[in-house]
Design a protein around this nucleic acid. Structure first.
Lengths: 226, 226
DNA sequence: AGTTGTATGTTGGTATACCATCAGTCCATA
DNA sequence: TATGGACTGATGGTATACCAACATACAACT
């Protein structure tokens, strides 16, 4: 049985090689497969990815603009390093933007949005029980995406996502941290609750608390690491 | 006379073609030479810029990640369009980030920083009298750069600059607007004053007022335009 | 006249070729 | 032995070649 949607549009994303390459590389970097400071040798990547240098290079330019890769002329691209000074700044920016978004979301949230949030939260908790990091990541992303987009702040969401990719390794670590097992989802639950009660101030507060703690955990991890 | 600095290091920025191309293209877009929605035909750009397609394409990838260019597969790069919904979001984000930076700057500002700010402000006022938009732009940029960097918020500054390039056409228009002639520098003067008095709250407030007005002017311009 | 098939040109996507630079190595010479 | 220079390999920067997809125009057929 071929399922036939209402409209017959064919809009298969042709998924250019470049787009796929960007995804793969970004994934490799944020998953920690490539360490900070590690060189990204173009021809080697070509072999590993099975694409030509043009594709690899354009993908690298994209990641460079995202801040994930730094390239100094005549020396080539290098995975951007992350120190606490930068990570701290990123957490502070997220604090501002996410608090604002949550507050705006709480102002406009209707039944549909609340349902989406609860669903994402439920998925998150399941993923936590199962200890499947990818699911946790996806559910978390969906939770925040709902908040930002329903608040009509898609540009802010774009900025946050970009920043997140730069601290993704830290996020992965914080998610794996045990004491976050209880407090992380707990904080997100209280964010969800505040939004469901259409209480902007409480929502903003919950976000700030959440990020304060996440930031603190990240700092400890980062300093312990070196 | 060859001036010989203390250290003999030769670190002439080799200025890759790509970097120069990015600059040129970005400049052409933010100056309005390429309108929103306009197609960027690669081979044409090659002729105009005198570089090969590889260079042009990599530059476009960079601008794409910056949000200045959007490219849909099989249709090619297009200059991103700017509607009020997006512009408004950008102004709101700037409000948050700049208020935070100004407040932090006011907390730490020493004599040196205050001097830099006053100098930038003085340059700005001269440029206003002379009605030289480029100087105005430069002085304004330097003013805010001082604020952000002295507050140790270089990532935030990076984000703001990127956002600014997306609304640069609007900024140019608002700068040219007459009633901003009095209020624009006036607001910036009060920001400067608040920082010089090391008054974080006043600094944040001044920034918010400034941006509220700039945003309002931008809205009128954008809606009048269509 | 309307519709459909086809030829063609434009454009972006991809791959490859070439060159300059840099670092390391090894040999020749003082 | 130490120094300098030439050679070589690796790498990034740049240019070009080829192909597929799409748009347009025109011709042919009903």
């Amino acid at each position: 049985m071929n399922d036939t949607p209402d409209d017959l549009r064919i809009d298969q994303p042709p998924a250019t090689l470049r787009a796929m390459t960007v995804e793969r590389l970004r994934g490799a970097i944020i998953s920690g497969r490539f360490r900070g400071g590690e060189r990204l040798v173009e021809r080697t990547l070509c072999d590993q990815l099975g694409v030509s240098r043009s594709v690899v290079r354009e993908a690298i330019r994209f990641l460079e603009a995202e801040g994930l890769v730094e390239t100094q002329a005549r020396s080539g691209p290098v995975v951007a390093k992350l120190d606490w000074a930068r990570a701290h700044q990123i957490y502070e920016i997220r604090r501002l933007l996410e608090a604002e978004a949550a507050s705006a979301c709480a102002r406009v949230a209707d039944a549909r949005i609340k349902e989406d949030l609860r669903q994402a939260l439920a998925d998150l908790e399941v993923a936590f029980e199962e200890a499947t990091p990818i699911r946790v990541y996806e559910a978390t992303t969906r939770f925040y995406e709902t908040i930002f987009l329903s608040a009509g702040q898609d540009i802010s969401w774009e900025v946050v996502q970009r920043l997140n990719s730069r601290i993704s390794r830290l996020r992965a670590l914080t998610l794996a941290t045990k004491d976050r097992h209880t407090s992380g989802p707990a904080h997100m639950a209280s964010i969800c609750q505040a939004i469901c009660e259409n209480d902007p101030a409480a929502a903003a507060l919950a976000v700030r608390e959440h990020l304060t703690e996440a930031s603190e955990i990240a700092r400890r991890l980062l300093e312990a690491e070196e």
